[in-house]
Nucleic acid binder design. Structure first.
Lengths: 331, 331
DNA sequence: ATGAAAGCGCTAACAC
DNA sequence: GTGTTAGCGCTTTCAT
């Protein structure tokens, strides 16, 4: 194996000191143009690459950002990660990725690995079951900013970026009312999640205040399959709803499968409206109308918040992405 | 900010030398049980975490693995990454993720970042346009194994893990023949890719040898939209195919949208068969029959190959994942 | 304009 | 069983 170039090697070859070479490579004003020239040349000839470990050790910092998500392979997270990666790369940061499998124990393991890797900052979407976030908050004590995103802890004072959940559900509810729908099957996700609670509360409220006569059938689905069954059952009875509201992409895909199975026409037989990251609704024909909760947008916001933090804006804040309706032809 | 515990601090507090502490923490046989006890206790009290940078610098190695993919947010890559992450975590490795946006220039940037981060190994799925892989192969010279996956360079001698492309297409072709289909629309991806070429060649060959009378309409689609248009055009004419073959998930989603728009019954009006990662085909009803090319499986294989490499099996090899048919009800 | 030297935190060869 | 020492590659202060 070819050994890597170091400052030492370059300096001895050029009869210069290590510090001069170091400075020359950084275009330090003290160094003469001629010396810089010589150093630069040899460095590129030897394909010199500064040793990041040495730099990190010396400066006690790194350009690594940790990301912990329940799973990568889901409608939303990979688009978040993708947009985060783009932003990070532009600023010279790299992303180290971990999955918790929605298991708090693995989440803790991942946290440990993040610490071990001495990440400069951490983005985390907690598991459905994470109650105690003190181990995360400890990172703040050692000046590693932690930014919670999407599924954020409800109680503590911590940095959060998430969607305007209440708004998203309200916008969908209003659209349904505006379309004069009367019988709504509303499928929500895991009842424990703060996201679910917020969305449901606001969804209900809009109906009770603006269209109290609407028949609301509210159910929960923790998976694609459950969403499909809920939809199938509700839509195959005689009391078929005129509208199905889906709280997430996962639920939407389940609902759509049931709709296809029942060979229902959209929106003639049943209308659909969803809250979504935006990819799934466009797969269908007609395209599904949805309230956008964009993972990409959230990724950008999260990264910006991290940079602000590095820039000194270390105060705690909760940021929201506004929701907007994207019209399809499903309602 | 609370300062982190180091060997130095622990040793001075305990009136021991740094090396004794270091050895105690590693459960070195030389150290007395009592000393070990005292050291362990103080270490956990101070929440000592070894400084990875110092270790990496000292040992000139890291537990980071680089991954470069064209995009994360696509049918296949995130499942590859997800499975790789699971495997890696089990072995104490962490994944640093980069997207090339299918742009060779960004790919080179990413490669540079991987070098900077001194990754212990690299997984890369090259862009559609990557012709020169010498910069990747250079890593091998400095003992950083590079494993190409999925879209692999066709010519050079390098480590590859990929699908048995020819087999996958052949299996689909045989299924179509077995179902006595006579008019096939076959949609392939980017014509430049070796994957495409292999799949198409073998697809054609099966038909010409086993069912030469079949009417084959072979087209290319570089995107979801193109696949939709190709399907729409072919299926709305009078000469509608009885079967649509889709080379990838992306193409399948496009084809399905066209099928829905034309309100064609599956498989009565048109049969479908696809090559797929396995998630998309199950979204539809009836479920689509597909030849599985599992990103998760490939991730596992790639990681295993990497570990073998670390274990000394540094010879170059090309590994394949066999293809298997997963029956739906679409043909 | 350049160099010497200390030190980041750790490991490991070599004392004793 | 424990300590001493050198050194990984770099930055940075202080000399000259």
């Amino acid at each position: 194996m070819k050994t890597k170039a170091t400052l030492k090697k370059i300096s001895s070859r050029l009869n210069l000191s290590i510090s001069t070479v170091s400075r020359a490579l950084k275009d330090h004003p003290d160094i003469s143009t001629e010396t810089k020239q010589r150093v630069m040349e040899l460095a590129s000839l030897l394909e010199y690459e500064p040793n990041t470990y040495a730099i990190n050790l010396r400066t006690n910092s790194s350009k690594l950002l940790g990301v912990i998500v329940p799973v990568i392979s889901t409608y939303f997270y990979h688009s978040f990660i993708a947009s985060l990666e783009e932003e990070a790369r532009k600023m010279g940061y790299s992303l180290v990725i971990f999955q918790s499998a929605d298991d708090p124990a693995i989440e803790q393991e991942n946290l440990k690995l993040c610490k071990q890797n001495r990440v400069a900052g951490l983005f985390v979407c907690i598991t459905t079951y994470t109650k105690d976030i003190s181990s995360f908050l400890k990172l703040n004590e050692v000046d590693i900013p932690v930014i919670f995103f999407d599924k954020v802890p409800p109680y503590e004072a911590c940095n959060k970026v998430c969607f305007a959940d209440a708004d998203a559900a309200a916008i969908a509810a209003e659209k349904i009312i505006q379309c004069k729908k009367k019988k709504v099957l509303a499928i929500f996700g895991n009842a424990e999640l703060s996201t679910t609670k917020k969305r449901m509360k606001s969804f209900r409220e809009v109906f009770s205040s603006k269209a109290p006569q609407t028949k609301l059938n509210i159910v929960y689905a923790n998976s694609f399959e459950e969403a499909m069954m809920q939809t199938y059952t509700a839509c195959s009875g005689t009391e078929r709803p005129d509208t199905v509201f889906c709280m997430s992409d996962e639920i939407l895909t389940g609902a759509m499968k049931a709709v296809h199975r029942l060979k229902l026409k959209i929106p003639a037989d049943v209308a659909l409206i969803s809250v979504s990251n935006g990819f799934i609704p466009r797969l269908f024909d007609p395209e599904i109308t949805y309230v956008e909760t964009s993972g990409a947008e959230l990724g950008k916001l999260a990264f910006k918040r991290m940079m602000d933090h590095f820039g000194g804006k270390t105060f705690i804040q909760e940021l929201h992405i506004p929701s907007k309706l994207v019209e399809g032809n499903s309602i």
